[in-house]
Design a protein around this nucleic acid. Sequence first.
DNA 1: AATACGGTTCTATTGCGTGGAAGCTGAGTC
DNA 2: GACTCAGCTTCCACGCAATAGAACCGTATT
Lengths: 234, 234
Amino acid sequence: MSELTSARVSASTRTVERALGLLADVAEHDARTLSACARSTGLAPSTALRLLRTLETSGFVTRSAAGTYRPGNRLVRLGALALGRQPLVDRARPSLQRIVDHTGESAYLVIRGGLDTAIYLDMVEGTHSIRHTSWVGRAIELEDLAVAGALRGERTEAGYLAQRDRLEPDVTAIAAPIRWAGGVAGALNLLGPTYRIDDATMHDYGRVVAREAGVISSHLAAEAGAPAHLEEVR
Amino acid sequence: MSELTSARVSASTRTVERALGLLADVAEHDARTLSACARSTGLAPSTALRLLRTLETSGFVTRSAAGTYRPGNRLVRLGALALGRQPLVDRARPSLQRIVDHTGESAYLVIRGGLDTAIYLDMVEGTHSIRHTSWVGRAIELEDLAVAGALRGERTEAGYLAQRDRLEPDVTAIAAPIRWAGGVAGALNLLGPTYRIDDATMHDYGRVVAREAGVISSHLAAEAGAPAHLEEVR
DNA sequence: AATACGGTTCTATTGCGTGGAAGCTGAGTC
DNA sequence: GACTCAGCTTCCACGCAATAGAACCGTATT
C-alpha cells in the first residue's frame, strides 16, 4: 500500500512542477544560463528550453540578449501583489527603520515559510559601510537559530534572543517575536558583524528590537482581521 | 496548413501556461475559490483542481481551511527575491517618502511592464484619511495616461506630466520620468483626489515629483551597472 | 585546426494530462 | 424532512502532447 499511496499522493502534474522548479531556479540565481538551469533541475536541455520558453512567453522570465534568464515582469508583478497582501510588511517598515536609526545595523522582517523554514521578507539596510548585505527573499532552515526561537514565540525575560556566529561566522543575530492573537506573526531580526557588537551593545540593541516587535504586536492586536498568512490557524 | 502552423507556433506547453494562468488568477484575487478559478481561466473544474493542487504542493499557493486559495509562501519568497533584484525599489523609497511628507498623497514607483503596460511596483501610502488605496502589483494599460508619457520620457518644461480624472474619475495623477543612460528606468507617480488638488497645488506637487525623479536619476547615473529590468536595452 | 561546450531544432515514442461522468457534501428553500 | 442546487472531488479511458535523444550549428578555447 505504501507505494500505492506514494504513487497516488503525487496528484500533481510533472510538467508544471518542473516549470515551477525552473522558475524558482531563475529567481534564485540571477542571470541564469540554460545549461545551468537544466543541470540544477536535472532536466534534459531540450526540455528545459521548452519550459523556459513557456515561462518566457508568459512573462514570468525574461531572456536577455546574452541568452541568460532572469525574473520577468509578470513575476515581479505577482510578487509585488503577494507582498502587498502581507500586512506585516507595511506595519513593520517604520520599526525596521527605527532599529536601523538606532543601531546602524541591517534589520529584517522574517516570517515562517514552510514547516521548518523562515523567509526574509523585507529589510532596511544598515548604515555602516560594513554591514549585512541583503537577504531579502532568502529562505533558511530554522534549526536552532535565534530567529527560529523567535518564530516559535520564545523570549528571554529581556524580550529578545541573541546568538553569535551561528548561521555564519562573525555574524551576530538578535531576534524578537511579533505576536498576534496568541500566535506568532513573524519576527524582527537584526544582523551585524560580531566584532562591533559586544555584550553591552547587544543588550542595548536587543531591547530596541524587542520594543519594536512589541510595538508591531500591539498594532496588530488593535486591528480587526488576521494577517493573511496566519489565516489557516483559525 | 493553417492549423498545422498554429499548432506549431505554440512552442509552449499548454499545461504550464494554464498553471501559470491559475497562479496569476489566485495572486490577483485574494481568497479565490476553485470554481471561480476554473471559470475565469476557462478550465474544467477537475483540471483546475489538479493544477491548483500541483501549485499547492509546490508551495506557490496555499489553501485555507475554508477551501479558498491564496498566494503561497513560495510565491511570496520569489516575489521578495525578484523585487530585491529591482534596484529601483531601494533607490526610490526615500523619494516616495519625501513626496508623501510634502503632499500627504500616495506616491508610487512605476516601471514598464510588457509592451503597453505599466506596473505599480511600490508605494508609500498617503497620510490623508481620504487617499488613494494601494495599487501595488497592479498592471495598467498605458494608453494616454500621464504615467505613460512619463515612461516614454516625455516631460513638459516644468518637468512633470499631470492629468485629471483620466484613469479614474476624481483622481488626479502627476508623473515624472526617472531617467537612466538616455533611457527611462521608471516613473514616479502621485495619485490623489481631484477635489484636493487645484491648479496651484498641482504645480507645487508636480515640482516635488519632478525633483525627486531627478534625484533618483542622478543617483542612477552616479552608479555603475544597469537596472536589471533595463538590461535588455544594451 | 581541433576540440568542447552551449544552444537549438526535429521527431518517434508513450507517458500522462485531459475532461466528462458520477459520487459526495453542505447550504439553501419549500 | 425532502428536495434542489452548487461546489468539490474522484475516477478513468482516450488521445494529445510532453519527453529525451540525436543531429546540427555557432562560438569559445587550446
